[in-house]
């Protein structure tokens, strides 16, 4: 028996609907159609009246969800693609994020963003928006990289009283499988040491975690032991785990699929430089997508984002410093 990343998300939503009558799902085509990626397949039938189709207006979707949250519900909003969440940006950052600060009323919405690219998905179906949302105080941003985390972190997202941006990776939907669902989990806000090492620390999250692990395996063949840290959540960011890892290795490479400017990698490096400067044996490095819109053509796309290959090259470079 094995379960995919997507199925884990579906299972988590089913469980949330079953456990808490205040939960409902709202998104485009989530009802009878079961969602663009089938993340809500059959849930409308299992939970009548709790899985609702929304109009093609992300602004309205989030706005309605915030209203419902104020009235005591716990909505899960499914964006069809992370890229499309921008029409709803104002609602998310100016209403949901700061509602509790302004009014003392919590806003327990969960916004699911199918993020990241696949070959041929192009500039509007491939973006990783986590850095944009993490920038705003009041939002929690989760970026699960494993099937187990997709399940447990989505459950925790629904349970948290703050607005949560849940960045699920499209490439992992069908490709990533696990033997079973977890029964316990690390809390949100803790990073996980995905691979213990000694010579260099790679900090990654979401789909890039798997590229980093592949890179680490390749370099293990040469006698280099790379430690890989899975951030799990971008906000809150587990600086302590990252700094402890750099204390062991002295070298840091941050990998992210998003663009370099003001991204998660930049934030991690800034924190390590501030809190762990004396631990660094070489300048910290980052590896991100090229600073261009995400290409459509598969040949261009394949060199646009970091891969295990480019991570190995970056790691080798860092080890030479």
């Amino acid at each position: 028996m094995s379960i995919t990343y997507l199925e884990a998300i579906r299972e988590a939503q089913a469980r949330a609907l079953a456990d808490d009558p205040r939960v409902f799902i709202y998104g485009q085509d989530v009802g009878a159609f079961g969602g663009a990626f089938k993340a809500t397949k059959n849930l409308a039938v299992e939970f009548p009246g709790r899985v609702l189709d929304a109009p093609i207006s992300e602004d309205a979707m989030v706005g309605a969800a915030i209203g419902a949250a104020i009235e005591g519900f716990r909505p899960i909003v499914e964006m069809q693609f992370a890229d499309f969440s921008t029409p709803g940006l104002n609602q998310i950052i100016n209403h949901a994020a700061s509602l509790y600060w302004r009014t003392n009323v919590p806003c327990p919405i969960t916004v699911r963003l199918p993020s990241g690219g696949t070959s041929g998905s192009g500039p509007f179906h491939s973006q990783s928006m986590e850095a944009i949302y993490a920038h705003y105080p009041g939002l929690i941003v989760m970026t699960p990289a494993t099937v187990e985390d997709a399940y447990s972190m989505l459950l925790e997202a629904v349970a948290i009283d703050d607005p949560v941006i849940f960045c699920e990776h499209k490439y992992l939907y069908y490709h990533l499988k696990a033997p079973c669902l977890p029964t316990e989990a690390m809390p949100v806000g803790k990073a996980r040491i995905a691979r213990a090492g000694r010579d260099l620390t790679i900090v990654a999250y979401s789909a890039m975690l798997h590229e980093a692990l592949a890179a680490a395996e390749e370099m293990a063949g040469e006698g280099t032991e790379i430690e890989v840290v899975d951030l799990r959540s971008i906000k809150p960011l587990d600086t302590d785990t990252v700094v402890a890892s750099v204390a062991r290795t002295g070298r840091l490479l941050c990998v992210g699929e998003a663009w370099p400017w003001g991204g998660v990698a930049a934030e991690v490096i800034a924190r390590v430089a501030t809190e762990g400067f004396d631990l660094l044996d070489a300048p910290p490095q980052r590896l991100n997508a090229k600073d261009t819109p995400i290409p459509y053509h598969p040949d261009l796309w394949s060199v646009h984002r970091p891969t295990a290959r480019s991570i190995v090259a970056a790691a080798r470079n860092l080890l030479r410093m």
């Binding site: 000694r198 032991e225 062991r248």
Partner: peptide, 10 residues
């Protein structure tokens, strides 16, 4: 080729 050491200090 030295065998991989466990995670730990240099």
């Amino acid at each position: 080729r030295t065998p991989a050491h466990g995670g730990g200090g240099v």
